[in-house]
Design a protein around this nucleic acid. Structure first.
Lengths: 194, 194
DNA sequence: ACACCCATGTAATGGGTTACATGATTGC
DNA sequence: GCAATCATGTAACCCATTACATGGGTGT
């Protein structure tokens, strides 16, 4: 259900085509809610059918057109209602922790290997989050820049600060994962020697 | 796919019925991989069909019987193979972060309310994790105790240490969430006043 | 002419959630 | 006798993943 709201959230910034959305996604909302094209296009259609979005055909090249979606009043109302509805805690479901709890079943070398891969992934992910955060702070992030262009300085301040806040959470989480992975490497060293 | 491995992991400790599993789940593996009964029973059947588990009928009361599952050699081999296979990073999909990034669309009072609810949830969750961790350290955790009863002290040590390691990760994560939530409350205070 | 991007999906499958359904046993 | 617990699921639905499919536009 959250995909809907991720899409509305993105479209409140500016009207976009499905293609724009699938591209912006990877650079903004996807950091909190990933979705592939094959899920985005059908969902946009359903949302239009449900009256949350409306679209206008805009020309593309000489003969072709593309559909530009914008959020309707009903869509915005729905989004606000969701924003204010209580948040149901997510069920834990994380293969990394499941594996870690049973590392004694794996070869120590394989464990080390996996931990290093995880470390590499989280380091890159963290770097990406920090780069993105910087573009929020200086307001150069394209999706954010388009969003705040229409807003008063007061409203822009709110929009920017909350986005930075979300990234701060993601960054803290990435650092926590990295610290845990390092502890894992130390633990394997202690238990199985070098 | 990980549900399979969560089930095998649990059954390597001792043979169990579906009912035992669904109960143990809530006190152990469910902290890393939640699953409801309605998913567990059919999955056990499929796993038996696939040769990963085998079952024996044990009497229950005068006339009834129950099925006790144990892991087959093929099941254990499959589990080890999974344990050593590379871990694919999870796609981010967290409604809490999605909402936080767009808090400017919600009423400040509603935001505060949600943050407080989240805070309460995570505090309870953290306390539960810490209690569970303590029962791993003193080896009084029933699922763990049954598991290590058959093992040499060396193997028991490995099993215990890795389980503690997994819980340390969960605890660190819970603390990180709590710190982020507190920052959120402070931010709302700053931006919207008291 | 060709590569690469823009644009928009469908189909099959799998996994998870929610609600419902049923009956036996044990302990008081 | 009755409640709580033990035991085992089915059905409908939704959401997500993976693989595939297709065609126009732009720049060299």
């Amino acid at each position: 259900m959250s995909l809907r709201y991720a899409l509305i959230a993105l479209l409140t910034g500016r009207p976009m085509t499905g293609y724009d959305i699938s591209k912006s996604f990877s650079r903004s909302v996807a950091h909190v809610w990933h979705a592939p094209d094959s899920q985005i296009y059908p969902e946009l259609n359903r949302m239009e059918r449900d009256g949350l979005l409306a679209s206008v055909e805009v020309p593309w090249g000489k003969r072709a057109t593309k559909k530009e979606y914008h959020v309707t009043d009903a869509g915005l109302a729905d989004f606000r209602a969701w924003m204010e509805s209580p948040l149901v805690p997510q069920r834990p479901r994380d293969p990394a922790y499941l594996k870690a709890a049973y590392f004694e079943f794996a070869d120590p070398a394989a464990v080390r290997e996996q931990l290093r891969e995880q470390q590499e992934y989280w380091e890159e992910h963290l770097a990406m989050l920090e780069r993105t955060r910087a573009t929020l702070v200086d307001r150069s992030h394209p999706t954010l820049a388009a969003r705040i262009a229409e807003l008063t300085e007061r409203d822009a301040e709110l929009a920017v600060r909350f986005k930075i806040y979300a990234y701060d959470g993601l960054i803290a989480r990435a650092r926590t994962e990295l610290a845990w992975i390092e502890d894992g490497l130390a633990l394997v060293e202690e238990l199985h020697g070098s």
